Simulated assay, not measured.
Amino acid sequence: MLMVGNLFVFMSFQMLIPTFPPYIKSIGASGLEIGLVTTLFSVGAVISRPFIGYMLEYRGRRPLVIIGAIMLFAVTIIYPLSSVVLFFLLFRLIHGMAWGWSTTVNGTAAVDLVPNSRLGEGMGYYGLSITIGMIIAPSLGIYLYQVTSFTNLIYLSAALGFIAIILLSIIQYQTPEAVKQVNKEELKFSYMGSLIEKSSWYPAFITIVTTFGYGSIVTFIVIFADERGIDQVFLFYLTNAIMASISRPIAGKWFDTRGPIGIVIFCLFITFIGMWVLSFAHHNWTIAAAGILFGIGFGSLIPTLQSWTLSETPPHRRGVANGMYFSSIDLGIGLGGLVFGILAPFVDTGTLFQISSVFLLIAIVMTIVKGKKGKQPQTQASS
Protein backbone atom coordinates (compact mmCIF):
# COMPACT_ATOMS: atom_id res chain seq x y z
CA MET A 1 0.00 0.00 0.00
CA LEU A 2 2.91 2.34 0.71
CA MET A 3 4.28 1.57 -2.76
CA VAL A 4 0.93 2.42 -4.38
CA GLY A 5 0.53 5.58 -2.32
CA ASN A 6 4.06 6.66 -3.16
CA LEU A 7 3.38 5.93 -6.83
CA PHE A 8 0.52 8.43 -6.78
CA VAL A 9 2.77 10.96 -5.02
CA PHE A 10 5.37 10.61 -7.78
CA MET A 11 2.75 10.61 -10.55
CA SER A 12 1.25 13.83 -9.19
CA PHE A 13 4.66 15.47 -8.96
CA GLN A 14 6.47 14.15 -12.04
CA MET A 15 3.70 14.98 -14.52
CA LEU A 16 4.33 18.66 -13.83
CA ILE A 17 8.14 18.65 -14.18
CA PRO A 18 8.45 18.94 -18.00
CA THR A 19 5.65 21.51 -18.20
CA PHE A 20 7.05 24.07 -15.75
CA PRO A 21 9.77 25.52 -18.06
CA PRO A 22 7.43 26.19 -21.01
CA TYR A 23 4.76 27.57 -18.66
CA ILE A 24 7.04 30.02 -16.87
CA LYS A 25 8.47 31.04 -20.25
CA SER A 26 4.93 31.76 -21.45
CA ILE A 27 4.40 34.21 -18.57
CA GLY A 28 7.57 36.14 -19.41
CA ALA A 29 10.44 34.43 -17.59
CA SER A 30 14.03 35.01 -18.68
CA GLY A 31 16.53 32.24 -19.37
CA LEU A 32 17.98 32.61 -15.87
CA GLU A 33 14.53 32.43 -14.29
CA ILE A 34 13.74 29.28 -16.27
CA GLY A 35 16.93 27.75 -14.87
CA LEU A 36 15.89 28.76 -11.36
CA VAL A 37 12.77 26.57 -11.70
CA THR A 38 14.96 23.52 -11.08
CA THR A 39 17.60 25.15 -8.89
CA LEU A 40 15.21 26.64 -6.32
CA PHE A 41 13.32 23.36 -6.09
CA SER A 42 16.52 21.45 -5.31
CA VAL A 43 17.57 24.09 -2.78
CA GLY A 44 14.22 23.81 -1.01
CA ALA A 45 14.48 20.00 -0.83
CA VAL A 46 18.01 20.06 0.56
CA ILE A 47 17.11 22.75 3.12
CA SER A 48 14.12 20.86 4.52
CA ARG A 49 15.57 17.35 4.80
CA PRO A 50 17.75 17.89 7.90
CA PHE A 51 14.72 19.15 9.82
CA ILE A 52 12.53 16.20 8.89
CA GLY A 53 15.46 13.85 9.48
CA TYR A 54 15.69 15.22 13.01
CA MET A 55 11.94 14.77 13.56
CA LEU A 56 12.16 11.16 12.37
CA GLU A 57 14.52 10.45 15.27
CA TYR A 58 11.67 10.80 17.78
CA ARG A 59 8.31 11.02 15.94
CA GLY A 60 5.97 8.27 14.73
CA ARG A 61 5.74 7.73 10.99
CA ARG A 62 2.02 8.13 10.27
CA PRO A 63 1.54 11.86 10.96
CA LEU A 64 4.75 12.81 9.20
CA VAL A 65 3.85 10.84 6.05
CA ILE A 66 0.35 12.32 5.90
CA ILE A 67 1.54 15.88 6.57
CA GLY A 68 4.06 15.55 3.73
CA ALA A 69 1.37 14.39 1.29
CA ILE A 70 -0.97 17.20 2.35
CA MET A 71 1.74 19.82 1.89
CA LEU A 72 2.46 18.59 -1.64
CA PHE A 73 -1.27 18.69 -2.42
CA ALA A 74 -1.62 22.22 -1.02
CA VAL A 75 1.33 23.61 -2.99
CA THR A 76 0.07 21.98 -6.19
CA ILE A 77 -3.39 23.53 -6.08
CA ILE A 78 -2.03 27.08 -5.67
CA TYR A 79 0.11 27.00 -8.84
CA PRO A 80 -2.69 28.46 -11.01
CA LEU A 81 -2.35 31.62 -8.91
CA SER A 82 1.28 32.02 -10.01
CA SER A 83 0.83 34.21 -13.08
CA VAL A 84 3.72 36.37 -11.81
CA VAL A 85 7.20 34.91 -12.32
CA LEU A 86 8.44 35.89 -8.83
CA PHE A 87 5.49 34.14 -7.16
CA PHE A 88 6.00 31.04 -9.31
CA LEU A 89 9.65 30.79 -8.27
CA LEU A 90 8.64 31.23 -4.63
CA PHE A 91 6.15 28.38 -4.99
CA ARG A 92 8.94 26.23 -6.49
CA LEU A 93 11.09 26.82 -3.41
CA ILE A 94 8.19 25.86 -1.12
CA HIS A 95 7.35 22.88 -3.35
CA GLY A 96 10.95 21.69 -3.02
CA MET A 97 10.75 21.88 0.76
CA ALA A 98 7.52 19.83 0.76
CA TRP A 99 9.08 17.32 -1.65
CA GLY A 100 12.15 16.96 0.56
CA TRP A 101 9.87 16.27 3.51
CA SER A 102 7.68 13.72 1.74
CA THR A 103 10.40 11.70 0.00
CA THR A 104 12.46 11.45 3.19
CA VAL A 105 9.55 10.36 5.36
CA ASN A 106 8.07 7.90 2.85
CA GLY A 107 11.44 6.27 2.25
CA THR A 108 12.04 5.94 5.99
CA ALA A 109 8.56 4.45 6.51
CA ALA A 110 9.40 1.87 3.83
CA VAL A 111 12.64 0.94 5.58
CA ASP A 112 10.76 0.47 8.86
CA LEU A 113 8.36 -1.98 7.18
CA VAL A 114 11.09 -4.11 5.58
CA PRO A 115 12.96 -6.79 7.61
CA ASN A 116 16.67 -6.00 7.84
CA SER A 117 17.50 -9.35 6.28
CA ARG A 118 15.63 -8.34 3.09
CA LEU A 119 16.51 -4.65 3.08
CA GLY A 120 18.00 -4.64 -0.43
CA GLU A 121 15.14 -6.59 -1.96
CA GLY A 122 12.48 -4.59 -0.13
CA MET A 123 13.86 -1.19 -1.09
CA GLY A 124 14.22 -2.46 -4.66
CA TYR A 125 10.48 -3.16 -4.73
CA TYR A 126 9.71 0.19 -3.11
CA GLY A 127 11.87 1.90 -5.72
CA LEU A 128 9.62 0.57 -8.47
CA SER A 129 6.94 3.06 -7.40
CA ILE A 130 9.46 5.82 -8.01
CA THR A 131 10.66 4.44 -11.34
CA ILE A 132 7.19 3.82 -12.76
CA GLY A 133 6.01 7.27 -11.69
CA MET A 134 9.05 8.96 -13.22
CA ILE A 135 8.56 7.14 -16.53
CA ILE A 136 4.79 7.40 -17.05
CA ALA A 137 3.97 10.78 -15.56
CA PRO A 138 6.22 13.14 -17.61
CA SER A 139 4.83 11.83 -20.91
CA LEU A 140 1.28 12.19 -19.59
CA GLY A 141 2.01 15.70 -18.39
CA ILE A 142 3.46 16.79 -21.75
CA TYR A 143 0.46 15.38 -23.61
CA LEU A 144 -2.06 17.12 -21.34
CA TYR A 145 -0.15 20.40 -21.49
CA GLN A 146 -0.40 20.26 -25.28
CA VAL A 147 -4.12 19.42 -25.48
CA THR A 148 -5.51 21.34 -22.51
CA SER A 149 -4.66 24.24 -20.20
CA PHE A 150 -1.97 24.40 -17.53
CA THR A 151 -4.72 24.92 -14.94
CA ASN A 152 -6.47 21.66 -15.92
CA LEU A 153 -3.13 19.87 -15.70
CA ILE A 154 -2.69 21.21 -12.17
CA TYR A 155 -6.16 19.99 -11.18
CA LEU A 156 -5.41 16.46 -12.41
CA SER A 157 -2.09 16.48 -10.58
CA ALA A 158 -3.87 17.62 -7.42
CA ALA A 159 -6.44 14.83 -7.83
CA LEU A 160 -3.65 12.24 -7.93
CA GLY A 161 -2.14 13.88 -4.86
CA PHE A 162 -5.46 13.66 -3.03
CA ILE A 163 -5.68 9.93 -3.83
CA ALA A 164 -2.17 9.57 -2.40
CA ILE A 165 -3.30 11.19 0.86
CA ILE A 166 -6.16 8.68 1.18
CA LEU A 167 -3.94 5.67 0.45
CA LEU A 168 -1.18 6.79 2.80
CA SER A 169 -3.72 7.38 5.56
CA ILE A 170 -4.83 3.73 5.79
CA ILE A 171 -1.40 2.11 6.11
CA GLN A 172 -0.35 0.33 9.29
CA TYR A 173 3.01 1.98 9.91
CA GLN A 174 5.80 0.66 12.11
CA THR A 175 8.02 2.90 14.21
CA PRO A 176 11.29 1.37 15.48
CA GLU A 177 11.49 0.79 19.23
CA ALA A 178 14.70 2.81 19.34
CA VAL A 179 12.76 5.82 18.04
CA LYS A 180 9.91 5.33 20.53
CA GLN A 181 12.37 5.31 23.41
CA VAL A 182 14.09 8.56 22.42
CA ASN A 183 13.51 11.44 24.81
CA LYS A 184 12.92 14.53 22.70
CA GLU A 185 14.06 16.82 25.50
CA GLU A 186 17.49 15.18 25.47
CA LEU A 187 17.75 15.28 21.67
CA LYS A 188 19.47 18.46 20.51
CA PHE A 189 19.02 19.66 16.95
CA SER A 190 22.11 20.26 14.86
CA TYR A 191 21.59 21.23 11.23
CA MET A 192 24.81 19.58 10.09
CA GLY A 193 24.15 16.62 12.38
CA SER A 194 20.77 16.15 10.70
CA LEU A 195 22.15 16.81 7.22
CA ILE A 196 24.95 14.23 7.37
CA GLU A 197 24.92 10.80 9.03
CA LYS A 198 28.59 10.07 9.75
CA SER A 199 28.17 6.29 9.90
CA SER A 200 27.00 6.10 6.27
CA TRP A 201 28.47 9.14 4.55
CA TYR A 202 30.64 7.09 2.17
CA PRO A 203 27.87 5.46 0.05
CA ALA A 204 26.08 8.82 0.05
CA PHE A 205 29.22 10.44 -1.37
CA ILE A 206 29.41 7.73 -4.04
CA THR A 207 25.79 8.64 -4.84
CA ILE A 208 26.80 12.29 -5.40
CA VAL A 209 29.62 11.29 -7.76
CA THR A 210 27.36 8.88 -9.66
CA THR A 211 24.42 11.24 -10.07
CA PHE A 212 26.80 14.07 -11.02
CA GLY A 213 27.71 12.02 -14.08
CA TYR A 214 24.06 11.14 -14.68
CA GLY A 215 23.12 14.84 -14.55
CA SER A 216 24.25 15.24 -18.16
CA ILE A 217 21.70 12.62 -19.27
CA VAL A 218 18.82 14.20 -17.36
CA THR A 219 19.60 17.63 -18.78
CA PHE A 220 20.55 16.89 -22.39
CA ILE A 221 19.01 13.64 -23.63
CA VAL A 222 16.07 15.35 -25.39
CA ILE A 223 18.42 17.91 -26.97
CA PHE A 224 20.75 15.05 -27.95
CA ALA A 225 17.90 13.17 -29.64
CA ASP A 226 16.96 16.28 -31.63
CA GLU A 227 20.58 16.73 -32.74
CA ARG A 228 20.84 13.13 -33.93
CA GLY A 229 17.40 13.04 -35.58
CA ILE A 230 16.10 10.40 -33.14
CA ASP A 231 12.33 10.84 -33.06
CA GLN A 232 11.42 8.11 -30.56
CA VAL A 233 13.36 9.21 -27.49
CA PHE A 234 10.61 7.74 -25.31
CA LEU A 235 12.12 4.32 -26.12
CA PHE A 236 15.01 5.18 -23.82
CA TYR A 237 12.62 5.75 -20.93
CA LEU A 238 10.41 2.78 -21.80
CA THR A 239 13.19 0.19 -22.01
CA ASN A 240 14.83 1.76 -18.99
CA ALA A 241 11.68 1.29 -16.91
CA ILE A 242 11.07 -2.28 -18.08
CA MET A 243 14.60 -3.45 -17.33
CA ALA A 244 14.74 -1.60 -14.01
CA SER A 245 11.50 -3.32 -12.95
CA ILE A 246 12.97 -6.72 -13.84
CA SER A 247 16.46 -6.22 -12.44
CA ARG A 248 15.79 -4.41 -9.16
CA PRO A 249 14.48 -7.42 -7.17
CA ILE A 250 17.43 -9.48 -8.43
CA ALA A 251 19.89 -6.76 -7.45
CA GLY A 252 18.18 -6.49 -4.07
CA LYS A 253 18.63 -10.21 -3.36
CA TRP A 254 22.28 -9.95 -4.43
CA PHE A 255 22.73 -7.12 -1.93
CA ASP A 256 21.07 -9.11 0.87
CA THR A 257 23.20 -12.22 0.34
CA ARG A 258 26.57 -10.77 -0.69
CA GLY A 259 26.61 -7.16 0.46
CA PRO A 260 26.83 -3.98 -1.60
CA ILE A 261 30.35 -3.89 -3.07
CA GLY A 262 29.96 -6.38 -5.94
CA ILE A 263 26.50 -5.26 -7.04
CA VAL A 264 27.43 -1.55 -6.92
CA ILE A 265 30.53 -2.15 -9.09
CA PHE A 266 28.49 -4.23 -11.55
CA CYS A 267 25.73 -1.60 -11.83
CA LEU A 268 28.22 1.24 -12.26
CA PHE A 269 30.05 -0.65 -15.03
CA ILE A 270 26.82 -1.44 -16.92
CA THR A 271 25.75 2.22 -16.60
CA PHE A 272 29.18 3.29 -17.92
CA ILE A 273 28.72 1.07 -20.99
CA GLY A 274 25.18 2.41 -21.43
CA MET A 275 26.45 5.98 -21.43
CA TRP A 276 28.93 5.20 -24.22
CA VAL A 277 26.29 3.33 -26.26
CA LEU A 278 24.04 6.37 -25.87
CA SER A 279 26.83 8.73 -26.98
CA PHE A 280 27.09 6.88 -30.31
CA ALA A 281 23.32 6.58 -30.88
CA HIS A 282 21.96 7.70 -34.25
CA HIS A 283 18.89 5.45 -34.45
CA ASN A 284 15.89 4.57 -32.32
CA TRP A 285 17.11 1.01 -31.74
CA THR A 286 20.45 2.30 -30.39
CA ILE A 287 18.81 4.63 -27.92
CA ALA A 288 16.53 1.75 -26.86
CA ALA A 289 19.62 -0.41 -26.28
CA ALA A 290 21.11 2.34 -24.14
CA GLY A 291 17.87 2.44 -22.16
CA ILE A 292 18.13 -1.31 -21.52
CA LEU A 293 21.65 -0.89 -20.14
CA PHE A 294 20.64 2.09 -18.01
CA GLY A 295 17.66 0.15 -16.66
CA ILE A 296 19.87 -2.75 -15.58
CA GLY A 297 22.68 -0.51 -14.32
CA PHE A 298 21.44 2.82 -13.04
CA GLY A 299 17.92 1.52 -12.36
CA SER A 300 19.32 -1.04 -9.90
CA LEU A 301 22.15 1.16 -8.65
CA ILE A 302 20.03 3.87 -7.03
CA PRO A 303 18.02 1.63 -4.64
CA THR A 304 21.19 -0.39 -3.95
CA LEU A 305 23.05 2.74 -2.87
CA GLN A 306 20.08 3.64 -0.67
CA SER A 307 20.09 0.18 0.91
CA TRP A 308 23.85 0.43 1.45
CA THR A 309 23.47 3.82 3.12
CA LEU A 310 20.71 2.57 5.41
CA SER A 311 22.43 -0.71 6.26
CA GLU A 312 25.31 1.21 7.85
CA THR A 313 22.98 3.45 9.87
CA PRO A 314 21.56 2.83 13.38
CA PRO A 315 17.74 2.40 13.23
CA HIS A 316 16.97 5.64 15.06
CA ARG A 317 19.13 7.62 12.57
CA ARG A 318 17.68 6.15 9.38
CA GLY A 319 15.52 9.21 8.82
CA VAL A 320 18.63 11.39 8.78
CA ALA A 321 20.42 8.91 6.50
CA ASN A 322 17.46 8.82 4.10
CA GLY A 323 17.44 12.61 3.92
CA MET A 324 21.20 12.63 3.30
CA TYR A 325 20.78 10.04 0.54
CA PHE A 326 18.04 11.93 -1.31
CA SER A 327 19.92 15.21 -0.91
CA SER A 328 22.95 13.47 -2.46
CA ILE A 329 20.85 12.68 -5.54
CA ASP A 330 19.53 16.25 -5.78
CA LEU A 331 22.99 17.73 -5.26
CA GLY A 332 24.66 15.41 -7.76
CA ILE A 333 22.12 15.85 -10.56
CA GLY A 334 21.83 19.59 -9.92
CA LEU A 335 25.58 20.20 -10.00
CA GLY A 336 26.01 17.84 -12.95
CA GLY A 337 23.40 19.69 -14.99
CA LEU A 338 25.01 23.03 -14.12
CA VAL A 339 28.62 22.02 -14.85
CA PHE A 340 27.85 20.12 -18.05
CA GLY A 341 25.55 22.93 -19.10
CA ILE A 342 28.52 25.30 -18.91
CA LEU A 343 30.63 22.81 -20.90
CA ALA A 344 27.92 22.08 -23.50
CA PRO A 345 28.64 25.01 -25.87
CA PHE A 346 32.20 23.78 -26.38
CA VAL A 347 31.59 20.09 -27.23
CA ASP A 348 28.86 18.08 -28.96
CA THR A 349 26.38 16.32 -26.70
CA GLY A 350 27.66 12.81 -27.44
CA THR A 351 31.13 13.86 -26.28
CA LEU A 352 29.54 15.44 -23.22
CA PHE A 353 28.08 12.05 -22.26
CA GLN A 354 31.49 10.43 -22.71
CA ILE A 355 33.13 13.02 -20.44
CA SER A 356 30.46 12.57 -17.78
CA SER A 357 31.00 8.80 -17.85
CA VAL A 358 34.39 9.36 -16.21
CA PHE A 359 32.59 10.03 -12.94
CA LEU A 360 31.13 6.52 -13.03
CA LEU A 361 34.69 5.16 -13.24
CA ILE A 362 35.61 7.33 -10.25
CA ALA A 363 32.66 5.84 -8.34
CA ILE A 364 33.85 2.33 -9.26
CA VAL A 365 37.32 3.07 -7.85
CA MET A 366 35.78 4.49 -4.66
CA THR A 367 33.68 1.35 -4.23
CA ILE A 368 36.68 -0.94 -4.79
CA VAL A 369 38.66 1.03 -2.19
CA LYS A 370 35.82 0.63 0.30
CA GLY A 371 35.67 -3.11 -0.36
CA LYS A 372 39.43 -3.54 0.11
CA LYS A 373 39.20 -1.89 3.51
CA GLY A 374 37.02 -4.79 4.61
CA LYS A 375 34.23 -2.58 5.92
CA GLN A 376 31.45 -4.08 3.83
CA PRO A 377 28.25 -3.90 5.93
CA GLN A 378 26.45 -7.08 6.83
CA THR A 379 22.67 -6.99 7.14
CA GLN A 380 21.25 -8.83 10.09
CA ALA A 381 18.00 -10.71 10.34
CA SER A 382 15.16 -8.77 11.86
CA SER A 383 14.26 -9.84 15.33
Results as ranks from 00 to 15, higher is better:
Met1Thr: 11
Leu7Glu: 06
Phe13Leu: 09
Pro18Leu: 02
Phe20Asp: 00
Tyr23Leu: 00
Ile24Gly: 01
Ser26Asn: 08
Ser26Glu: 01
Ile27Trp: 01
Ala29Lys: 00
Ile34Met: 06
Gly35Ser: 04
Ile47Phe: 07
Ile52Thr: 00
Met55Gln: 04
Tyr58Ala: 05
Tyr58Thr: 00
Tyr58Cys: 02
Tyr58Asn: 01
Gly60Glu: 14
Arg61Pro: 01
Arg62Leu: 06
Pro63Leu: 05
Val65Ser: 02
Gly68Leu: 02
Leu72Cys: 13
Ala74Leu: 15
Thr76Phe: 06
Ile77Glu: 08
Ser83Tyr: 08
Leu86Val: 14
Phe87His: 07
Phe87Asn: 03
Leu89His: 07
Ile94Gln: 05
His95Ile: 11
Gly96Tyr: 12
Ala110Phe: 09
Val114Gln: 09
Val114Leu: 12
Ser117Asp: 15
Gly120Asp: 12
Gly120Thr: 12
Met123Trp: 02
Tyr126Cys: 05
Ile130Thr: 14
Thr131Phe: 06
Ile135Asn: 08
Ile135Arg: 01
Ala137Trp: 10
Ala137Thr: 07
Pro138Ile: 07
Thr148Ser: 15
Phe150Asn: 09
Asn152Glu: 13
Ala159Lys: 06
Ile163Ala: 14
Ala164Cys: 09
Ala164Arg: 03
Ile166Trp: 10
Leu168Pro: 03
Leu168Thr: 02
Ile171Ser: 05
Ile171Ala: 06
Gln172Asn: 15
Pro176Gln: 10
Ala178Thr: 15
Val182Glu: 13
Lys184Ser: 15
Ser190Trp: 10
Met192Gly: 13
Gly193Val: 11
Ser194Gln: 12
Ser194Pro: 12
Glu197Ala: 13
Ser199Asp: 14
Trp201Gln: 12
Trp201Phe: 15
Trp201Ala: 13
Ile206Cys: 13
Ile206Asp: 14
Tyr214Met: 13
Gly215Pro: 13
Ser216Leu: 03
Ile223Lys: 13
Ala225Gln: 11
Gln232Met: 09
Leu235Gln: 10
Leu238Pro: 04
Asn240Leu: 15
Met243Cys: 14
Ala244Lys: 03
Trp254Ile: 14
Phe255Cys: 07
Arg258Asn: 14
Val264Asn: 08
Ile265Cys: 11
Phe269Gln: 03
Phe272Cys: 04
Trp276Asp: 11
Ser279Cys: 09
Ser279Phe: 02
Phe280Ile: 07
Ala281Gln: 06
Ala281Phe: 05
His282Tyr: 11
Asn284Lys: 07
Asn284Ile: 06
Thr286Tyr: 00
Ile287Leu: 13
Ala288Pro: 05
Gly291Pro: 01
Ile296Gln: 02
Ser300Phe: 03
Ser300Met: 08
Ile302Ala: 12
Pro303Asn: 09
Leu305Pro: 02
Gln306Tyr: 01
Trp308Asn: 04
Ser311Cys: 03
Ser311Asn: 04
Ser311His: 01
Thr313Tyr: 11
Pro315Met: 09
Pro315Ile: 07
His316Ala: 13
Val320Leu: 05
Ala321Gln: 05
Gly323Glu: 08
Met324Val: 00
Met324Tyr: 04
Tyr325Phe: 15
Ile329Lys: 02
Leu331Asp: 02
Gly337Tyr: 09
Thr351Cys: 01
Leu352Trp: 02
Phe359Ile: 10
Leu360Ser: 04
Ile362Thr: 10
Val365Arg: 03
Gly374Ala: 09
Lys375Phe: 10
Lys375Asp: 15
Gln376Lys: 07
Pro377Arg: 05
Gln378Phe: 04
Ala381Lys: 11
Ala381Phe: 03
Ser383Ile: 10
